[in-house]
Design a protein around this nucleic acid. Structure first.
Length: 575
DNA sequence: ATTCAGATAAACAGAG
DNA sequence: CCTCTGTTTATCTGAA
C-alpha cells in the first residue's frame, strides 16, 4: 500500500525547476495535497472530541466517583475511537478513489517524489495490528512476562518522536491501578437510547472496537459484549490512551504537513523578493495547460533575463524558473523574440507575477501586441490612449521603465501594424481598442507548433476536461468552490483553475475562429463594441478574473492613472 | 532553404 | 522648432 508523502517545499521547488511535472504528476500533487486537507478537516473535528475526552479522563482520575460521568466518558471513548477509524477509512477511500482514477500513480524512479510510506504508518491495517498487540499483550502481561513488546512497539510504531513516551507507558498503571471503577450498569440504557441501531462501535453484526471484531448477532448481544469485553478497565483505558497517542501523532504529522503545505502555497504564490517565487506557479500552469511533454523541459513561458538571452535554455540550474533581480540592467538592442508563443494565458501570468514584473527588470514573455491588448482590455472601457498604454507598460513592468524610445516606438509600430488594434476618434482625442476577432486570428500560428495538442483539445477536451473535472471534483471534496477561488481564499488553486480554463478557452477559440474568418472590413465601430462573438467564456475570465482584481487593488479603478513612471524613465532613458 | 511573425530602427508626416 | 502621435519601410532574428 502506497501512502502518498507530502513533498517538502524544497522538493517542490526541485520539481518545478526541473520542469519534470507532467500533467499527471501535477494532478498527483494536487490530489495529495487535497487528501491532506481532507485529512486535516477530519482531524480538526476529532481533535475537539479528543480534548474533551482527555479532560474528562483527567477528572475521572482525580475523582472517579460519579458513574454517570464515567458512562459518558466511556461512550465518548467508544465513539471517538470509532470515528477515528472511520476517519482513517475515509482517507483510505479517498486515496483509493484517487488511485482508481489513475491519479495517484507516481512515476517510479522519480527522485523528486519520494514515496516512502509515512513513518507513522497510520493505515487501518497497522492500527488494527497495533491494537491487537496491545490487547494480547495486556493479557500476556497478566500471565507471562512478555509484556514489554506491546508498549514498546506502540511507542516505536506510533510515536517515533512523541513527546510523551513515558506517559504512555506509565499512565495506564498509574490510573488504572487507582480509582477507575469498572462496571457501570447504566451504560446500556444510555447507549441504547442514544445510538440504538447506529452505535458507532457496532456495524454489520460486528463489534468495531479496535482489534476486536467479535461477532454479535444483534444489538443487544453487542451491548452485552461491549460491557463485558470493553468495560472501563485497565485494558480499555490503556487502549484508549494508545489511541490518544495515535491521534496525537496524527495531529502532529498533520500540523507538520499543514505547515508544509502552507509554506508551499505561500512560496509559490509570488514574492517578488524571492527570485524563484514568481514564475513557478506559471510553470505549473503552463506545463499542464500546454500538455507539452514534460521531458521537453522547455523554458515554457519563462522570461529570460535580458543578459542571458540564449534561448536554448540553461536548464535546471538557473535558467527558466530562476529570475535573479541582479544582472538585469544590461540594455540595448536585444532582438529577442519572446512572444507568447508558449501560449501562456497572459492575464494569469501577469496577475500571478505582477509583483515580480513590477520590480524585476525582466522582459515579460509576451509580444507587444499581447501586452497592448492586455492593457486595453484591462481598462474599464476597453480603450486607451497611446499615452495610457505607455503608462500601463511602465506601471506593470519594470522592464519598460528604460529604453522608452525603443519600446514606445515598438508599441506605436504594433498599434499601426496590427489589424487587431483599431484607432477610434474620441472627444478627447484618439483611443485604441482591440478587435478581438482579428487578434485571435493571428494566434493560431503560435499554437500550431503542437498540432497534436490542438487535436487533443479539439476532440472535445480530450485532455482538458478530465483535468478540469478532476480539479473540480477534488475541490468539491474539500468544499473549495472552483470558480470563486480565483478571487477568494485559495489563490494558487484558483489561479491554476482559471489558467486552465483560460487556456482551454483560448485553445477552443483558436480552433474555432477559422469559421468566422474573412472579416468584413472592420470599421472602428465594430471594435468599439468589443466583439464578443465566441469570446464569452474568455472575456470575463481575462477581464474580471484575478487580473482585474489585482489591478483594482493597486490603483483606483477610475481614470486617475498613476504617473509614477511617466516622466523619469523618459528622461533617464534618453541616454 | 524558405517563410513567417515579431522586434528593432528609422524616416516621414501631421497636429498641437 | 519641438514633441507627440501615427504610418510606413527596412532589416534582423528565431522558429516552424
Amino acid at each position: 500500500m502506497m501512502t502518498p508523502q507530502v513533498i517538502t517545499p524544497q522538493q517542490m521547488q526541485q520539481i518545478l525547476q526541473q520542469q519534470v511535472l507532467s500533467p499527471q504528476q501535477l494532478q498527483v500533487l494536487l490530489q495529495q495535497q487535497q487528501a491532506l486537507m481532507l485529512q486535516q478537516q477530519l482531524q480538526e473535528f476529532y481533535k475537539k472530541q479528543q480534548e474533551q475526552l482527555q479532560l474528562q479522563l483527567l477528572q475521572q482520575q482525580h475523582a472517579g466517583k460519579q458513574p454517570k460521568e464515567q458512562q459518558q466518558v466511556a461512550t465518548q471513548q467508544l465513539a471517538f475511537q470509532q470515528q477515528l477509524l472511520q476517519m482513517q477509512q475515509l482517507q483510505q477511500q479517498h486515496l483509493l478513489s484517487l488511485q482508481r482514477q489513475g491519479l495517484l500513480t507516481i512515476q517510479p524512479g522519480q527522485p523528486a517524489l519520494p514515496l516512502q510510506p509515512l513513518a507513522q504508518g497510520m493505515i487501518p491495517a497497522e492500527l488494527q495490528q497495533l491494537w491487537k498487540e496491545v490487547t494480547s499483550a495486556h493479557t500476556a502481561e497478566e500471565t507471562t512476562g512478555n509484556n514489554h513488546s506491546s508498549l514498546d512497539l506502540t511507542t516505536t510504531c506510533v510515536s517515533s518522536s512523541a513527546p510523551s513516551k513515558t506517559s504512555l507507558i506509565m499512565n495506564p498503571h498509574a490510573s488504572t491501578n487507582g480509582q477507575l471503577s469498572v462496571h457501570t450498569p447504566k451504560r446500556e440504557s444510555l447507549s441504547h437510547e442514544e445510538h440504538s441501531h447506529s452505535h458507532p462501535l457496532y456495524g454489520h453484526g460486528v463489534c468495531k472496537w479496535p482489534g476486536c471484531e467479535a461477532v454479535c448477532e444483534d444489538f443487544q448481544s453487542f451491548l452485552k459484549h461491549l460491557n463485558s469485553e470493553h468495560a472501563l478497565d485497565d485494558r480499555s483505558t490503556a487502549q484508549c490512551r494508545v489511541q490518544m497517542q495515535v491521534v496525537q501523532q496524527l495531529e502532529l504529522q498533520l500540523a507538520k504537513d499543514k505547515e508544509r503545505l502552507q509554506a508551499m502555497m505561500t512560496h509559490l504564490h509570488v514574492k517578488s523578493t524571492e527570485p524563484k517565487a514568481a514564475p513557478q506557479p506559471l510553470n505549473l500552469v503552463s506545463s499542464v495547460t500546454l500538455s507539452k511533454s514534460a521531458s521537453e523541459a522547455s523554458p515554457q513561458s519563462l522570461p529570460h533575463t535580458p543578459t542571458t538571452p540564449t534561448a536554448p535554455i540553461t536548464p535546471v540550474t538557473q535558467g527558466p524558473s530562476v529570475i535573479t533581480t541582479t544582472s538585469m540592467h544590461t540594455v540595448g538592442p536585444i532582438r529577442r523574440r519572446y512572444s507568447d508563443k508558449y501560449n501562456v494565458p497572459i492575464s494569469s501570468d501577469i496577475a500571478q507575477n505582477q509583483e515580480f514584473y513590477k520590480n524585476a527588470e525582466v522582459r515579460p514573455p509576451f509580444t507587444y501586441a499581447s501586452l497592448i491588448r492586455q492593457a486595453i482590455l484591462e481598462s474599464p472601457e476597453k480603450q486607451l490612449t497611446l499615452n495610457e498604454i505607455y503608462n500601463w507598460f511602465t506601471r506593470m513592468f519594470a522592464y519598460f521603465r528604460r529604453n522608452a524610445a525603443t519600446w514606445k516606438n515598438a508599441v506605436r509600430h504594433n498599434l499601426s501594424l496590427h489589424k487587431c488594434f483599431v484607432r477610434v476618434e474620441n472627444v478627447k482625442g484618439a483611443v485604441w481598442t482591440v478587435d478581438e476577432v482579428e487578434f485571435q486570428k493571428r494566434r493560431p500560428q503560435k499554437i500550431s507548433g503542437n498540432p497534436s495538442l490542438i487535436k487533443n483539445m479539439q476532440s472535445s477536451h480530450a485532455y482538458c476536461t478530465p483535468l478540469n473535472a478532476a480539479l473540480q471534483a477534488s475541490m468539491a471534496e474539500n468544499s473549495i468552490p472552483l470558480y470563486t477561488t480565483a478571487s477568494m481564499g485559495n489563490p494558487t488553486l484558483g489561479n491554476l483553475a482559471s489558467a486552465i480554463r483560460e487556456e482551454l478557452n483560448g485553445a477552443m477559440e483558436h480552433t474555432n475562429s477559422n469559421e468566422s474568418d474573412s472579416s468584413p472590413g472592420r470599421s472602428p465601430m465594430q471594435a468599439v463594441h468589443p466583439v464578443h462573438v465566441k469570446e464569452e467564456p474568455l472575456d470575463p475570465e481575462e477581464a474580471e478574473g484575478p487580473l482585474s482584481l489585482v489591478t483594482t487593488a493597486n490603483h483606483s479603478p477610475d481614470f486617475d492613472h498613476d504617473r509614477d513612471y511617466e516622466d523619469e524613465p523618459v528622461n533617464e532613458d534618453m541616454e
